[in-house]
Nucleic acid binder design. Structure first.
Length: 420
RNA sequence: GCGGAAUUGGUGAAGUGGUUAACACGCCGGAUUGUGGCUCCGGUAUGCAUGGGUUCGAUCCCCAUAUUUCGCCCCA
């Protein structure tokens, strides 16, 4: 037997109902906010991710699915959504138009990781990228959109953790200050932090081991290293969020792992989730440098991404979603060949009128068909028998009350629609 | 990349170094001649993740591998 590859899942049964619902909510909300669906390739040239996500990030260092195709091209399965969207924006020269481009995506991502709770090798993210504007109103819209989608799925106690890294200069100054600050104390920090000071010093700030140490608590804060313009910009973002009535907390330790971020960075967490490690449902930030770095014009971008797998597993724990079941409206039962022909017609008619309908596909006896109908959670049963059919009648049974009624065969679709 | 735990039918699982691997649910068939769900009867793993080893004998002990799961790193 061939099993599925490590770190992958089959989404089926009741789970797939929740997935379909989540996708439905996402696309509706995206539509209201006027975001255009974009579908970029699942694989891209490897160089794209090396240049965008950054060599220092673990995503590129050890987590990408890389391979050479038959034409000797270095290909990588996408580990995140932003790079592909930005690539497309540049490649298609969307920036020549004076408009802001607002994209949303929803698709599978691939990271070669050790699977564990809330973490898969193939997982699904949805997210947005807004390209071509640096106005803080866009930051606020992106953050609030993420918040409102999760909220409308019924997730409660959401909180945005937000921070600003400032522009390139602020970010570099801060990075330098951090390194200078930590260097004399490095032996007091954990082994991972000793490594981080070389690769990504900002990450020391959210180290779990040293979280309570006074060294970390007294570390320089990003906010203090913002130049006045960056600071003003950040304050505007916060002001707009206030007007949108979005709960946020300014958290100077939010740094995000991807190299391309500047200015606004944020994460969204569900405070209800017991599993504090996986309570980060999504995150994002502004990436004004990235477009130029990928050979585009000097432009602006901001986006967020959310993990649908994590959202669905959170939803599954909620009362609201616990009793979700796949069910059908009508099950049509027959035994003889002649009845079968009638069934064919009745079923098709119901289906074309939007009634979720099933009939016997296994040539079972009547008893077996009752069992199948129950397993499918059918609301109504239509039972065909030759005697009634000759009089133009069919039996309809309400499977909840067990009441039966004989209905004219020409009015059956109408009758069912009226009863549902 | 590093560390811990686990792996027995469709499902939940019990179990033992020695002939037929409990029990329950589910499923299939029958009692019930074309209106079921209750009840009763019968059937449902030629095999205990895979490959080696120890042993007269291994599902059970040992090793390796795979997968699952929980952590670290990192991230959604």
């Amino acid at each position: 037997m061939i099993a599925k590859p490590k770190g992958t899942i089959d989404i089926k049964g009741n789970d797939s109902i929740i997935w379909e619902y989540v996708n439905h909510v996402i696309s509706n909300m995206m539509n209201s906010y006027n975001y255009e669906f974009i579908r970029t390739p699942i694989f891209e040239m490897s160089e794209l991710f090396h240049r965008s996500v950054g060599e220092s990030s673990d995503i590129v260092r050890k987590e990408t699915y890389d391979f050479k195709d038959k034409g000797d091209r270095l290909i990588t399965l996408r580990p995140e959504g932003t790079a592909g969207v930005v690539r497309s924006y540049i490649e298609n020269k969307e920036y020549v138009l004076p408009d802001v481009k607002k994209y949303y995506y929803n698709g599978t991502m691939y990271r070669y990781e050790r699977p564990q709770s809330g973490r898969l090798r193939e997982f699904t993210q949805f997210g947005v990228e807004v390209l071509g504007s640096n106005d803080p109103i866009v930051d606020a819209e992106v953050i609030s959109l993420q918040y409102r989608i999760l909220e409308s799925l019924g997730i409660e106690n959401l909180q945005i953790n937000i921070n600003s890294l400032g522009n390139n200069e602020s970010r570099n100054n801060y990075r330098e200050a951090l390194v200078n600050y930590f260097k004399p104390h490095i032996n007091e920090l954990c082994d991972d932090c000793k490594e981080r000071i070389k690769t990504n010093p900002l990450r020391i700030l959210d180290c779990k081991v040293d979280a309570d140490s006074s060294i970390l608590k007294n570390a320089p804060k990003t906010i203090d290293y913002l130049n006045s313009e960056s600071k003003k910009r950040f304050e505007e973002v916060l002001k707009y969020l206030d007007y949108l009535e979005i709960d946020y907390e300014v958290n100077p330790n939010i740094v995000r792992g991807l190299d391309y971020y500047d200015h606004t960075v944020f994460e969204i967490v569900s405070l209800d989730n017991d599993d504090s490690k996986n309570n980060v449902l999504g995150g994002g930030g502004r990436y004004n440098k990235l477009i130029k770095e990928l050979d585009g014009p000097d432009s602006y971008g901001i986006g967020f991404a959310c993990g649908i797998d994590r959202i669905v597993s959170l939803l599954k724990e909620m009362e609201l979603y616990k009793n979700i079941k796949r069910e059908i409206d009508v099950y049509v039962m027959y035994v003889s060949e002649e009845e079968k022909l009638y069934s064919l017609n009745i079923v098709q008619n119901l289906r074309l009128n939007g009634v979720v309908c099933e009939t016997d596909n296994l040539n079972k006896g009547l008893k077996g068909q009752f069992k199948v109908a129950d397993r499918l959670n059918a609301k109504y049963l239509i039972i065909l028998n030759n005697e009634d059919l000759q009089k133009g009648l069919v039996t309809v049974k309400d499977n909840a009350t067990k009441e039966e009624e004989k209905i004219d065969i020409d009015e059956i679709t109408e009758y069912i629609i009226g009863s549902l």
